[in-house]
């Protein structure tokens, strides 16, 4: 009886997770197949599909924490299992992904992608599985410079937040009143009047613009974000055809799990009721 209940519960869980998997992947497949690929520089603001090559965005160098290999992005899932318990399945112990932005480059321009907002290579096979012991292993996904990169998300122009940077600079300058007066007190009366304050504001704005232009990612004029609605920001280091094939396959697998699980649940219920 206990075994039957366990199988029933397993079938029910399979049916529910299969249904969710089917719907989610069918929707992703529809979005991928239904959206034409844009070129970065001529894409209109909105939900777009881009395809190109992965490039660094000029931020800090990234190395995965297990093999210490340089890459643009990594995701490490550490799994463990018990040596002695009855259930020897792997369970997730820890997840860690890099947060440095990366860029998608095509022949027209580059676009910044912030990993925290994206579903990157989710549900793809890991690049490597490192076995630490018989009870602990690390699955590692990596994106390297030059890898093919596919992305589907909300594209917008990057505008440097000059007003915020200007305000921050002015706050810093105001902390050192003596230096502020030395720099901007044109008439030498020991006070900063309205005209002198305007000059300080202008200088802060110029400095903020210069800092923004000197930023390592200043040449990247676009960024891809998660849209405000429930559509995803999908990123994969695969070609569009591979990504599409993968989600279609997962959608069919989900459907099979849903139908199989549901049929078993119905069959078991009927047997129990009669």
């Amino acid at each position: 009886m206990t075994d039957e209940v366990q199988v029933f519960a397993f079938a029910a869980i399979t049916a529910v997770s299969g249904y969710l998997m089917w719907r989610r992947n069918m929707r992703a497949a529809n979005l991928i197949e239904g959206t034409a690929t844009s070129r970065v520089a001529s894409a209109a603001k909105g939900y777009v599909e881009l395809a190109g090559t992965a490039r660094g965005a000029g931020g800090k160098p990234v190395r995965d924490p297990i093999q210490f290999l340089g890459c643009l992005w990594y995701n490490v899932v550490t799994e463990k299992r018990s040596m002695w318990s009855r259930n020897r399945d792997w369970s997730v112990e820890r997840r860690e992904a890099s947060s440095e932005p990366l860029a998608l480059q095509d022949d027209s321009g580059s676009c910044l992608i912030t990993p925290g907002e994206a579903k990157i290579d989710e549900e793809q096979d890991p690049d490597v599985i490192v076995k630490e012991s018989s009870t602990r292993r690390h699955k590692i996904w990596r994106i390297h410079d030059g890898d093919p990169l596919y992305a589907l998300g909300f594209l917008e122009r990057r505008e440097p937040a000059l007003a915020g940077a200007q305000g921050e600079l002015l706050r810093v300058w105001k902390r050192d009143q003596a230096k502020l007066i030395e720099r901007f007190d044109g008439n030498g009366d020991g006070h900063i009047d309205a005209a002198e304050w305007e000059r300080a504001r202008h200088a802060a704005l110029e400095r903020a613009a210069a800092d923004a232009a000197a930023a390592p990612d200043a040449h990247i004029h676009y960024q891809l974000r998660r849209p405000g609605d429930d559509r995803p920001l999908l990123v994969a280091s695969r070609t569009e055809a591979e990504v599409s094939r993968r989600v279609t396959w997962r959608s069919r697998l989900g459907l099979a799990m849903f139908v199989g699980g549901t049929l078993y649940v119905l069959f078991a219920l009927q047997r129990y009721l009669t």
């Binding site: 034409a36 690929t37 844009s38 070129r39 520089a41 001529s42 894409a43 209109a44 027209s108």
Partner: peptide, 10 residues
């Protein structure tokens, strides 16, 4: 020209 290409693909 770029957007025409995109339109035709759509």
């Amino acid at each position: 020209a770029d957007r025409r290409e995109f339109y035709n693909e759509s």
